[in-house]
């Protein structure tokens, strides 16, 4: 496992990054900024498709940093609650696997999206 200081440095850096990116991500759902009437209309398929294709890199960056931040946070709590060589290893491996699986899903939703008919 990597050094704790490196993981926590990443935790703080991703945290700072997310303050910006999540604000942006939430602001995309404010109807008046998008010139539509309601919150649900900002989730319309063409709007969402344009957003995914237009900001794909930002969305992927948001997904990866959020996943890292969240999974590292959960890992931290789990390591604190219980101790033991096997438990520690199991938590670390589970965290790594969860990160890879969800990062793959997130990548697929950005890369594999088709234009709405």
């Amino acid at each position: 496992m990597a050094r704790a200081s490196l993981l926590y440095l990443l935790q703080y850096v991703t945290g700072a990054l997310m303050i910006v990116l999540v604000s942006w991500h939430l602001a995309m759902r404010i109807p008046w900024l998008r010139g539509v009437e309601s919150f649900i209309e900002t989730l319309d398929s063409t709007v969402v498709y344009n957003e995914i294709t237009g900001f794909s890199v930002l969305l992927l960056l948001l997904a990866y940093s959020t996943l890292f931040h969240g999974i590292n946070g959960l890992r931290m709590i789990l390591l604190e609650l219980r101790h033991g060589r096997y438990w520690d290893r199991a938590v670390n491996i589970a965290a790594l696997i969860t990160f890879i699986v969800f990062a793959a899903i997130a990548t697929h939703s950005v890369v594999g999206v088709e234009p709405p008919s």
């Binding site: 050094r3 704790a4 200081s5 926590y8 931290m76 390591l79 604190e80």
Partner: peptide, 9 residues
């Protein structure tokens, strides 16, 4: 102190 059980706890 550089560990989860040290300063980062």
């Amino acid at each position: 102190v550089d560990s989860e059980d040290g300063v980062f706890g």
